[in-house]
Design a protein around this nucleic acid. Sequence first.
DNA 1: CAGGAGCTATAGACCACGTCTATGACCAAC
DNA 2: GTTGGTCATAGACGTGGTCTATAGCTCCTG
Lengths: 292, 292
Amino acid sequence: MTNNYELYKVFYWAAKTGSLTQAAKALYLTQPSVSHAIKQLEESFGLTLFYRNAKGVSLTKDGAVLYSYIEQSQTLIQLAEEKMASLKNLDSGELRIGGSDSLFKHYVLPYLEEYHYRYPNIKLHLNHGTTPEVISFLKEGRIDMGVVRMPIVDSQLEVRESIQLQDCFVAGARFAELKDVTLTLEMLLQYPTILFSRNSRARMAISELFHSYGYQIKPEIEVGSVDLLIEFARKGLGISYVTREFVTKELEEGSLFEIKLDVQLPPAFVGIMTMRNVPLSSSAAKFIELMQ
Amino acid sequence: MTNNYELYKVFYWAAKTGSLTQAAKALYLTQPSVSHAIKQLEESFGLTLFYRNAKGVSLTKDGAVLYSYIEQSQTLIQLAEEKMASLKNLDSGELRIGGSDSLFKHYVLPYLEEYHYRYPNIKLHLNHGTTPEVISFLKEGRIDMGVVRMPIVDSQLEVRESIQLQDCFVAGARFAELKDVTLTLEMLLQYPTILFSRNSRARMAISELFHSYGYQIKPEIEVGSVDLLIEFARKGLGISYVTREFVTKELEEGSLFEIKLDVQLPPAFVGIMTMRNVPLSSSAAKFIELMQ
DNA sequence: CAGGAGCTATAGACCACGTCTATGACCAAC
DNA sequence: GTTGGTCATAGACGTGGTCTATAGCTCCTG
């Protein structure tokens, strides 16, 4: 018993409308096609499904039994098709993004607001973690995309380069004497520094820079969040290494100022990671489109 | 959005087995056909349904949503097909018969026993009524077949002639003097007679017979059931007009004897009625086959 | 009662499309 | 590197689903 399921669609409409002619219209077929289809079903079961009357058809006992199953089945398919359409045009679905707290707060958030405004029925899931954590989230399929600092070298990942960030050292009023001075790395090391504690891209980048000049940077204070980096610098606890774009407000209002150095600190790029060879969900594709 | 539902069957198996190749085997297709089918579905939705891995396929988020609907839908269809098969081979279903009490008791019952023994899962419904009532049951679709006395003249009905019955007059010990006598109709009328009260075929037939000879038969007693006809005759309340085949036991044991007449009483036939132009249910077809 | 307007069934022709074979590309494991 | 598994692609083939045309039936109506 392995029927062409298409026949059930015909059966459903014939039973529902009580007329082969009406069913044909609903299915954009001709009446003989419907008649033929019903006959096929009947022959495959060895049962009569419809009484043929002068004014249409009506279900036999056996046909009514079949209908009770097929009706539900068809309804489910119709619901499925509607659901697929709503997923397609982002009337439902979800978007799962991984990244660091600071990038979320300072970079992704505005886009998320716009996205949520446009597609209010897409559920948003944000998973924060370090770059390696985000990468494994991605590989495990727990997120659709990750927003992290470049460079990323992983052949399984596809990385879209996004905005450029410039890290820098900033200090508050306590170190006002450094405002108009250009420091060397060596001079900087005389002051207490505050670095991000976790094994982040930014931390690694600055350590390497000092190392390449023969120095080693040992922070006075290590903190676990970008907000604390900023806060501690403002309070005068030391000189913080932060992303300039994330302290625009403080720099403008003067609560922090940037330390000028005689070396160029390396720029950083934000990358939007997705799995190579894994198709994007429409929600994720739309979000990436929005960010670019 | 009007898809070929056949594609959902392919999708179901692909998702269920996690492999296009396995799905192809389950459906007796080739792998490229399955691949093509899935692609069609994906294009029709504008969504990706599967991740293609080296060792098979796995559902995307969208695909998983679709599967949650389609799985149920397919299960229903499979249940429907099983149910149809069980209806076909009489593992389930019902049989609704209409007829008179006496015919049920003396004629249909043995067949019903055999039928029920062979097909214990077929539910039996017996509806008793007069011939016109049974005919309207049939026309209303409340029964599958009717067992009544002939003749039936109705172009909507198909009537299969069944066994022949012979009505006759019987009496008990009280009228022992009539045992070896052959009576004329006129002589018979001297005795008290007991007839069936309802407007039955048998009653009509005997009234007509007397009428055609210029007499009129007025029963001493009218009773509402065949059992009472027999009982009253045995008790000596009169001469009952009954169907000979229904009193075989009493005739054999001698509690009743048949009155010989000088005229031939008309024979009666039992007819099995079904609706012409309305297909028989398999349960009814089987029962009729059993009776013949 | 004849004729029309529904309905479904049947016959036969046709061509799209679903299926096939053959092959390619890719990946993982040995 | 080789082998054996996966899915994707290309192109050919032929069947089966669809069509048109028509018949047959029932009911309704003038």
